[in-house]
């Protein structure tokens, strides 16, 4: 059974006004448990809107959403439990910090779940370790942290609820390259340790190619494709036509291929590209 499933999911902003806008259009999707899904698409293609349906923050204009086999919005009182099951980290999550200490802020979610103090303590410490925050900032005010640390604290706040599915909207946006890589690596590690389902929206093809097991491409409110990175980047022509850049390395290898270098595979990570080149050089 897929952990997330949608049937004909459609969402219209401002329905019935002259400003109405279909942000998600008739999306059918099945996401299996344990995947690390990267969501990519042009700005305004409906990524953020789509993921807010997975924990019942937005109510579909039409269509259905199933989480773990349970249909959302059938029973409104179940929504809160669904939100503990599907953790959603918004874009720029540092703007949601409000408590007087980092510890308390991370504990907000678990506390709302009604967990015991000792369990909360365990989870806060674990999630802080997971995002790479050292324990000595625990008693600091979240507003004293650096931008990157704030981001981590906010992500930890959702991780601490130990959701079955963790969804992050552009977790690395606005960070410097080193900070980005660190956060993305930590997310991947979280995925490997927990064996949970993780989804993340990103604008960087490189990041997505490097870290994910499946890619969901959104285009103009519709799902363009949902497949493994190999299969998605195999369609690099179409992606480029949509205005999405494929990873640089894929472009380089596509050019090499066009220039007559015997390459059969699709290359989308630098490591794999390096291996191929080495092999080619050896066989020469």
């Amino acid at each position: 059974m897929p952990i997330i499933k949608t049937e004909g999911l459609t969402y219209v902003y401002g329905e019935g006004t002259p400003f109405c806008k279909t942000a998600v259009d008739n999306v059918d999707l099945e996401i299996d448990e344990g995947e690390l899904v990267g969501i990519i698409g042009h700005t305004g293609s409906g990524k953020s809107t789509l993921i807010q349906h997975f924990n019942g923050l937005l109510k579909p204009t039409s269509g259905k959403v199933f989480i773990d086999g349970e249909q959302l919005w059938k029973d409104k009182s179940r929504l809160r439990d669904i939100r503990f099951k599907v953790g959603l980290v918004f874009q720029y999550p540092e703007y949601q910090l409000f408590e007087e200490s980092v510890y308390k802020d991370i504990a907000f979610g678990p506390k709302n779940m009604g967990l015991s103090d000792s369990e909360i303590d365990k989870r806060v410490r674990e999630s802080m370790r997971m995002v790479g925050l050292s324990e000595d900032i625990m008693e600091k005010s979240p507003f004293e942290l650096s931008g990157g640390q704030k981001r981590r604290a906010a992500i930890a706040g959702v991780m601490a609820m130990d959701p079955k599915v963790l969804i992050l909207d552009e977790p690395a946006s606005g960070l410097d390259p080193k900070g980005r890589d660190a956060i993305l690596a930590q997310i991947r590690e979280y995925h490997q340790q927990k064996k949970n389902t993780v989804m993340m929206v990103s604008h960087s093809m490189e990041d997505i190619a490097k870290h994910t097991t499946k890619i969901l491409v959104m285009n103009k409110a519709k799902v363009f494709c949902y497949d493994t990175p190999v299969n998605v980047f195999h369609r690099s022509k179409e992606l480029e036509q949509m205005g999405l850049a494929v990873p640089q390395i894929t472009r380089v290898f596509n050019r090499l291929k066009a220039a007559g270098v015997p390459i059969e595979d699709d290359v989308y990570t630098v490591e794999f590209g390096k291996k191929l080149i080495m092999r080619l050089l050896e066989n020469r």
Partner: peptide
């Protein structure tokens, strides 16, 4: 818009 976003973010953390 800010209020909407913050409310959604806190709801996602189980704020009631």
């Amino acid at each position: 818009e800010d209020t909407d976003k913050i409310m959604s973010a806190q709801k996602a953390r189980g704020a009631d």
